[in-house]
Design a binder for these strands. Structure first.
Lengths: 244, 244
DNA sequence: CGCCAGGTTGATTTCGCTCAAGCAATGTGG
DNA sequence: CCACATTGCTTGAGCGAAATCAACCTGGCG
């Protein structure tokens, strides 16, 4: 338990174990010291805003621990989660790279420790080390591919399929294995947020959940969902739709 | 009419008038000569493939004249247009930057002249001139924002709204003004392609078109569409949906 | 205790998908 | 030149999924 001070995430970039898992992994030791030099670290409570729409983009953030929801505002003014970032993920770099005000908001979903690096330092690092730019480029292209895939899927798939897919996404970060070997998930969001993520209303989601329980594919209780038949769930999603 | 040889697009990068309007605008004269050194130029007939899914990404393309459809394959194997590129646009850089095989296809929609620049030269330029990387980065981030905007809109809007929005997109590149001052568009795609772009079926689009004619918002005849009431069309789209 | 936010359920309607048929324009082969 | 297939588009009828509007729980909190 008693971890050595320097190896705790969110305390020092140089010894941070997470650095190998994100875009900073291409930095040299000297560059990492530069990073550490401007690093600030903050604690956020569940529900706190990390940044909000319209603010200037002052730097990038790095999740030392916890979960952060990136939300986009729809035409009616609702903040809809577009993706969740976790442990070791860097976020907030898009507004920074473009030098524009925040177009998304970021909100801690649980008590989280988050590091911050100033814009000027990131820009310096980008100039010094071209590989860093490549890292971000790869990340953005991957995001873009995801967005396009999702666009194609949303056009064809039912809300039920989209929701099942969302559950599977959560499985990787929020999934646990119960004593009997079955998987369960502690959902990080309210029904309303879940519904908006698949582009539907909470009433519809409620009905979908009801039908999933009837079918024995899932058992919901509050924000916990058990998935006793994960195999048939996977089978249901991967069935391609028959287009003309 | 008799334009000076060097100022015709698709003949020589150094004097190409389009270069100021795309990502190459940040190149120095020496760098532009390097570009020109590897440039190849091809003529494509309407319907010809520029590249196809699965091919290695050998370089980037630049539209000297014509229109090219970038298509993505859906789960059922249909090539659905994701965006059209025009005069001066550079395309095919994503696969190249990531060094992966083509995940999209590109098809000329009308007789088109398209230049090609080899991967190695692009990589050299990217290393020499960091501003070029920035240009592509900006472009990709903009594409990503677009994709996210579209995701949000698709979740809420009716097929009719999505189609109207698509028509407006075409207006900028395919729009003309008739003698009476009204706008008309020469559509670059078949009904089937238009339908798939808004994520619906041919039949549904046909009905939407019928209703638009009833409402007096548009008159279709083959691939030509007149928009006599552009103002009310704009008003219809911008009306935000009332979310709970 | 009343109030409120988050969630569920019910009744109704609207929208768009599906399967079909029909039609015009174009192409093809005898 | 005609019989026939093919392709692109339109139209019709039926149906199912989901939006809408509404009532109604339930637990937390002042």
């Amino acid at each position: 338990m008693a971890e050595q001070h320097g190896q705790v995430p969110g305390v020092c970039c140089i010894t941070c174990p997470l650095r190998q898992h994100n875009e900073w992994c291409v930095l040299t030791e000297a560059e990492t010291r530069l990073l550490e030099g401007s690093r600030k670290s903050w604690e956020f409570a569940a529900g706190d805003a990390v940044f909000s729409v319209g603010e200037p983009s002052l730097g990038v953030y790095c999740v030392a621990s916890g979960v952060v929801a990136i939300r986009k505002i729809d035409t009616a003014g609702h903040a809809i989660p577009t993706r969740l970032v976790y442990h070791s993920d860097i976020f907030g770099y898009r507004g920074l790279l473009l030098d524009v005000n925040r177009r998304y908001s970021a909100q801690a979903l649980c008590p989280s420790r988050i590091c911050f690096v100033d814009k000027s330092v990131v820009k310096t690092l980008l100039e010094r080390n071209p590989a860093l730019g490549q890292q971000f480029l790869h990340r953005i292209v991957a995001d873009l591919e995801d967005a396009h895939d999702q666009l194609m899927r949303n056009a064809t798939q039912s809300n039920r399929s989209k929701f099942l897919r969302l559950l599977l996404m959560f499985l990787s970060h929020h999934g646990r294995t119960a004593k009997d070997g079955s998987q369960y998930i502690a959902l990080p969001l309210s029904r309303r947020d879940l519904a908006s993520m698949i582009g539907t209303r909470q009433e519809t989601l409620s009905r979908i959940i009801g039908r999933l329980e009837e079918d024995g594919l899932a058992r919901f209780s509050g924000r916990t969902v058990h998935l006793p038949r994960l195999d048939s769930l996977l089978r249901e999603i991967q069935r391609p739709s028959q287009f003309a």
